[in-house]
């Protein structure tokens, strides 16, 4: 049998396979370059970027929980200037699409970021993190109300011709409603899920474990919720979907594809096995061969429901 076709196209971005790395779990690619071949990945999604550098939260920022971890990094990042100066030169040498995850404190900042990123030829696509607070609206997250999500996505749409992927927050009452709002604002794709807000308590000290009190839950513990959300959104909205949440094996990845994802992102699992994303590609290919499936695209949304 000839080699199965792993290629996918998401929001106009052509990828050699559906396996991407998730923002904030893979640095700027370089950190992992000695553990795996970056050119075996579908795409690299970089750490959340903002206009000016961001300090992030006080320590402790991470804690392990059963089957997962909580993080409150606080979106620490180098800012767009330093990104262009120090990170792009390396990424330019890697023949893999780079998708830049970004955020802003206000709608205007999102638009300005999009405008700046639009001019960088090495950037194949933009992933908007809308899980962060809008400082002009009392700090409620852009991604928690459909109207706000619509408006910020629209502002970004008007600032770039590059593909826009909106990363949805699971911390909402109805994620389908949010997806509709993004589709209406002409997003090119959706990625889900971001982390679920949680907390951990130290009984002995009677204190929260994280300095920020709450943090985002990621890892295998969130996979069932992520699968459910991908399934719901894919049935309701006609946009390509990138599935995220607790993916650590090719089996996990393929389950997300059955649920309706055209591609996946691997997050927390990178921390445990730095070469895991490449292994998932390899195992996915083997699965297709063993099951005589000629193209991975055939599995997208192929969940059978009586």
């Amino acid at each position: 049998m000839k080699k199965p076709d792993l290629t996918v196209e998401i929001a106009g971005i052509k990828m050699r396979n559906p396996v991407m790395t998730a923002s904030g779990t893979f640095g700027y690619g370089e950190e992992y370059s000695s553990y795996l071949n970056l050119e075996r990945l579908g795409a690299i999604v970089t750490k959340g970027l903002s206009l000016s550098p961001k300090a992030g939260n006080p320590m402790p920022r991470i804690v392990e929980t059963p089957g997962g971890m909580l993080n409150a990094i606080g979106l620490q990042n180098v800012g767009i200037e330093a990104f262009i100066e120090n990170k792009i030169p390396f990424l330019r040498t890697v023949d893999t699409p780079v998708i830049v995850n970004f955020f802003g404190n206000t709608e205007d900042e999102y638009a300005e970021m999009a405008e700046r990123l639009d001019k960088i030829p090495e950037v194949s696509g933009l992933e908007m993190n809308i899980s962060c607070p809008n400082v002009k609206q009392g700090g409620i997250a852009f991604g928690s109300k459909p109207d706000n999500a619509y408006s910020v996505v629209k502002a970004v749409r008007e600032s770039t011709i590059k593909p826009i992927i909106v990363k949805l927050s699971p911390n909402v009452t109805d994620i389908v409603e949010m997806a509709h709002a993004c589709a209406e604002a002409e997003a090119d794709g959706l990625s889900l899920i971001n982390t679920l807000t949680g907390m951990a308590i130290d009984l002995q000290k009677r204190k929260p474990v994280l300095a920020n009190i709450t943090g985002g839950l990621s890892g295998p513990a969130i996979k069932p919720i992520a699968l459910r959300m991908v399934w719901q959104v894919s049935r309701a909205v006609d946009l390509p979907i990138i599935g995220i949440g607790g993916i650590g094996t090719a089996t996990d990845a393929l389950e997300f594809m059955l649920a309706g994802a055209s591609a996946v992102q691997v997050g927390t699992a990178n921390f445990i096995s730095p070469g895991i994303a490449e292994k998932i590609v390899h195992d996915m290919e083997r699965y297709l061969v063993e099951n005589r499936i000629s193209a991975v695209r055939e599995l997208v949304g192929a969940l059978e429901i009586q």
């Binding site: 904030g24 640095g27 950190e31 992992y32 553990y35 300090a55 990094i73 620490q76």
Partner: peptide
């Protein structure tokens, strides 16, 4: 010593403040 997730500089979970750290110009 610090709590660590990745150990390779990718997660930013293990930071400590450098000597020139200020709120405006963070040095983690």
């Amino acid at each position: 010593e610090s709590n660590m997730a990745c150990g390779v500089g990718a997660c930013l979970g293990c930071v400590t403040k450098g000597s020139s750290h200020t709120e405006e110009k963070p040095d983690y």
